[in-house]
Each structure stands twice: as structure tokens, then as C-alpha cells.
């Protein structure tokens, strides 16, 4: 055997050059690689090249107007002052925004995340496939409305004067204000979460619905023969079967833990001064720093970089957690 191994080693062909191997691979996979080219080009152009502007976070000032982008980026004013501002000079505003963001997203993860799963399970139980699809389309429709339209629709329902809710119940409640809500309660977070749920749950349920319909029907037949009722089938069969999808979506949601979406918060916060002052979230704060009042690109970039780093950490931790305890993960 040793002799044979030596012989094999001896007759192993000489290692080819890099270009030769590349040529062979290109020849072999060219038609497939051609599909990647446009996407890769776009990803590099719009995804990776702009990353160079992260350097703006490490400048004392980054002024695009009076310099060219590269003059501004490589001018000798390097510092960490923008990061120290986050936790120093602007700490109050930043931590208020962070707290609000975490609270809203935390509630969304606990209360809203399961709703698309429940919708998907309910839809999968509709025996008439056409009817199930029709329900799904109806539930998905709000997703195609822009946030200004969504807020406008609900404002018509909830505004105090001439609002639908007040007109129906003969009440005079300022639902959309911080001071005159029912019993003086501010409903900002309730509206943010419920409008988001109304808009997105139907759409988000598609992923779970397709996962459920792809489960082999013979499993259900077997479960039925074993005497499992609908609830037991759902609990013991459906949910475990779609668990990879649930885990994937959960990790994706955790990744966006520091983002509540800007449009919805901005439109709602503008309805009440206290919402504008005290219900600010990180996206809204970032917008104000970069575009509205400040035009402070360096600080906004530092803030964005911080958010991305934290999000990435959350994603990695979430993924590790899922892999360790649930044996499922993104990779």
C-alpha cells in the first residue's frame, strides 16, 4: 500500500498555474457567472464603494459642499469626537431615542412577530385554495400603501374633530394627542405598533404560509390517524416544520432592533409636540442630525455606524443563540 501511495504521489500531475485554473473555471461556469455580474456590479457600486464614506464618522467635520468628497474625506482632521458626542454632549437625546427604539421594537418582537405566523396557520386551514389566496391578497394590500397614506387613513379614524371613531361612539377624545387620549394616556406607541402590524402582517405571513403549504400532507394524515386534533397538529407538526423559517425571520427582525422605520415615526410624531420631544427614535434622531436641522454628516455617520455595529452584534448573538438552543440559524 505504501508503495502504491508513493506511486500515486509520483504520478500526480504537476500543479497548474493560477490563470490556467481560473480559465478552466471561467470556461466551465461562465454561463452561470454571467448571471452574477450585474448584481455583483450593483452591489459593489452601491453597496461597497459608498462604505468609504464611513470615514466621515472619524472627522471633526465633513463638509460636502465646499470640498469634493475625497478632499473632505482625506483632509487631516481625523478624530473620534463624533463618537464621544454620542455618549457625551448628546447623551440625553441619544439615550432617549435608544430607549424608545428598544421599547417599541421589543414590543413588536413579542406581540407583533407571532401574528403573521398565526395568520399563515389560519390561512392554511382554509380548505378552498382560491379563497385562501384571496384572503392573503386582501391582507397584503396595506403593505402596498405608503406610510403617509396609512397615517392619513387612520388619522381620519382617530382625529378628534369629525373623526370616524368619535362620530360613531359620540365621544370627544383626542386619540392622536399626548394629553387628551383616553384617560390622559398617550397612545403613541400603541399607534406605532398597531399601524405597523396592520400594514405588514399580511405581507410577512406569505413566507410562513408558503412554508406551511410545502409540508408533506401525509404527515397530517398520519397525525390524524394517530388521533391528533387540529391544535395538536399545529403545535406538534406545523410549528416544528416551519421552525427554520421562524428562526430565520426572528434573526432578521433582531437585526433591525435599532430601527423602527423613519416615515411612520416622523408622521405620527409631528401630530403632537410631546411626541416630537419625547417619543423620538433613533431613525428620527438620525434624520434630524443629518438632514433636517443640523446637516452634521460626520455625527450622523458615526451614529449610523454605531447603529449598524450594534445591529450586527445582535444578529450574531441571535444567530448563535438560535444555533445553540434551536439548532437552526442563518448559516
Amino acid at each position: 500500500m505504501e508503495l502504491l501511495a508513493k506511486k500515486v504521489k509520483l504520478i500526480r500531475p504537476k500543479q497548474e498555474g493560477y490563470w490556467h485554473r481560473l480559465g478552466i473555471k471561467l470556461k466551465k461556469y461562465l454561463p452561470i457567472m454571467a448571471f452574477i455580474v450585474p448584481a455583483a456590479f450593483m452591489a459593489v457600486l452601491f453597496g461597497y464603494i459608498p462604505l468609504i464614506f464611513l470615514l466621515a464618522a472619524f472627522k471633526t467635520n465633513f463638509n460636502l459642499s465646499i470640498y469634493t468628497p475625497f478632499q473632505a474625506l482625506f483632509s487631516p482632521n481625523w478624530s473620534f469626537v463624533q463618537f464621544t458626542k454620542i455618549f457625551g454632549e448628546n447623551a440625553d437625546e441619544f439615550f432617549l431615542a435608544l430607549k424608545n427604539t428598544l421599547v417599541i421594537n421589543g414590543i413588536k418582537l413579542v406581540l407583533i412577530f407571532p401574528i403573521p405566523i398565526i395568520i399563515a396557520i389560519m390561512l392554511s386551514e382554509v380548505k378552498n385554495a382560491t379563497l385562501a389566496k384571496l384572503f392573503l391578497i386582501i391582507l397584503c394590500l396595506p403593505n402596498f400603501l405608503s406610510w403617509p397614506t396609512v397615517i392619513g387613513i387612520w388619522q381620519n379614524f382617530f382625529r378628534q374633530s369629525d373623526g370616524v371613531i368619535n362620530s360613531i361612539f359620540g365621544t370627544n377624545i383626542g386619540w392622536l394627542t399626548s394629553d387628551n387620549g383616553p384617560n390622559g394616556i398617550s397612545l403613541f406607541r400603541f399607534f406605532v405598533i398597531s399601524f405597523d402590524a396592520w400594514k405588514g402582517c399580511g405581507w410577512n405571513s406569505i413566507m410562513f404560509y408558503t412554508a406551511i403549504v410545502s409540508i408533506d400532507k401525509s404527515y397530517y394524515e398520519a397525525a390524524e390517524l394517530d388521533g391528533a386534533n387540529k391544535f395538536q397538529q399545529t403545535l406538534r407538526l406545523t410549528l416544528p416544520s416551519i421552525f427554520p423559517t421562524i428562526a430565520l425571520m426572528f434573526i432578521m427582525n433582531i437585526t433591525y432592533i435599532l430601527s423602527c422605520g423613519f416615515d411612520e415615526i416622523n408622521l405620527l410624531a409631528n401630530l403632537d409636540p410631546n411626541w416630537k420631544l419625547y417619543e423620538t427614535t433613533l431613525d428620527y434622531y438620525l434624520y434630524n442630525q443629518a438632514l433636517a436641522e443640523n446637516a452634521d454628516f460626520s455625527y450622523a455617520t458615526a451614529l449610523g455606524l454605531f447603529n449598524s455595529t450594534v445591529s450586527l452584534t445582535f444578529m450574531l448573538v441571535g444567530n448563535s443563540f438560535c444555533k445553540k438552543f434551536l439548532h437552526r440559524g442563518l448559516w
Binding site: 378628534q160 374633530s161 394629553d179 409631528n270 401630530l271 403632537d272
Partner: peptide, 10 residues
Amino acid sequence: NEVIVSDWVG
């Protein structure tokens, strides 16, 4: 005294 509507800010 409700002379002004509560959601006047928006």
C-alpha cells in the same frame, strides 16, 4: 375648555 380642538398641533 375645548374651545380649541385637541389635535390642533398637526
